[in-house]
C-alpha cells in the first residue's frame, strides 16, 4: 500500500479547498441560511408540523443531504477532471499507485470536505431551530456513507467527462431534480399516490428518508432499506471505478 501517495493526494485536495475557503465552505453555508430564512421561517411558519416535527426542523436533514450530494459531486468530479484537463494526470498514472490508492486520496478528500460542510450546516441550523438528533451514530453513519458514495459518483463523472459542460450536466440535469424531488422539503406521503410510487424509483428518497429517521424517527421508507440502498449505490460506484481503471477508460489510450 502506497500510504505516502494517498497522503499527498489527500493533502493536495484538502489544501485546494482551504485555498478557496469562501467557495468551498462559506458558499454552502450562505445557501443553507437562505433556505432556512425562506423555507424554514417565512414559508415554514405557515406549514403544519409533520409527525410532531416543526417544518423548520423537518427540513434540516433534507438541506444537509441537498448540500452534501451537490458538494460531493462537485468536489470529487472537479478533483479528478482538472488534472485530466491540464495534463497533470500523467504524474498520477506514471506513479506506483493502485486505483484503490488514487480513489482513496481523491474521494477521501472530497468526502471529508462534504462531511465538514454538513457539520457546519448542522451547526448553522442550530441557530434557527432547536436541534434534535435521536440516533447520532446512525446519523453520522448515514452522513459518512452518503459523502463517500456521492464522492465516488462524482469521481466517475470526473473520469467520464470530456469537457466542462459534461462535468456540469449530470449534477445540474439529473442530480438536482432528483434531490428536489427526493423529499428534501417534504415527506412523500404529501404527494398523490401515483407520485408516491414514482418517487420510490428515486434513489435520493432512500438517502433523505434514512437520514431523517436518524434525526426524528420519521421516514418514508424503512431505515434498513435506506441503508441497503446507500450501500448498494456505493458498491456500484466502486465497481464502475474499478472497471474504468482496469480498462484505462478516458485515462489511458
Amino acid at each position: 500500500m502506497n500510504i505516502h501517495a494517498i497522503r499527498v493526494i489527500y493533502k493536495y485536495e484538502m489544501k485546494r479547498a482551504f485555498k478557496t475557503i469562501a467557495q468551498s465552505f462559506a458558499s454552502p453555508v450562505i445557501s443553507t441560511v437562505l433556505y432556512f430564512v425562506v423555507f424554514g421561517t417565512a414559508i415554514g411558519s405557515r406549514i403544519d408540523a409533520i409527525d410532531n416535527v416543526s417544518y423548520g426542523l423537518f427540513i434540516v436533514p433534507g438541506l444537509v443531504m441537498l448540500t452534501v450530494l451537490s458538494q460531493s459531486l462537485a468536489n470529487a468530479s472537479f478533483g479528478i477532471y482538472f488534472p485530466r484537463f491540464t495534463g497533470q494526470i500523467y504524474e498520477v498514472l506514471s506513479a506506483p499507485v493502485s486505483f484503490v490508492e488514487i480513489v482513496t486520496g481523491y474521494v477521501g478528500a472530497a468526502a471529508t470536505k462534504s462531511f465538514l460542510i454538513a457539520l457546519i450546516i448542522l451547526a448553522t441550523a442550530s441557530f434557527f431551530v432547536e436541534m434534535r438528533i435521536d440516533h447520532p451514530f446512525l446519523m453520522l453513519a448515514f452522513l459518512i456513507l452518503t459523502c463517500i458514495s456521492f464522492s465516488l459518483f462524482g469521481f466517475i463523472i470526473g473520469l467520464w467527462a470530456s469537457d466542462f459542460e459534461k462535468l456540469q450536466i449530470i449534477p445540474l440535469l439529473v442530480i438536482t431534480p432528483l434531490v428536489f424531488l427526493g423529499g428534501t422539503f417534504y415527506t412523500i406521503e404529501m404527494l398523490p399516490p401515483v407520485w408516491q410510487t414514482i418517487s420510490l424509483f428515486n434513489p435520493v428518497v432512500y438517502l433523505v428518508s434514512g437520514f431523517r429517521w436518524s434525526f426524528f424517527e420519521v421516514s418514508d421508507v424503512s431505515v434498513g432499506l435506506s441503508l441497503s440502498m446507500v450501500l448498494l449505490f456505493l458498491l456500484i460506484c466502486l465497481l464502475i471505478i474499478g472497471w474504468m481503471f482496469k480498462t484505462g477508460y478516458r485515462l489511458k489510450q
Partner: peptide, 15 residues
C-alpha cells in the same frame, strides 16, 4: 501551488 509543495507531492506520490 508552490514549487516546494509540488516537489513534495511528486515525492510522496512515488511512495
Amino acid at each position: 501551488e508552490s514549487v516546494w509543495d509540488t516537489f513534495c507531492f511528486s515525492r510522496g506520490l512515488f511512495g
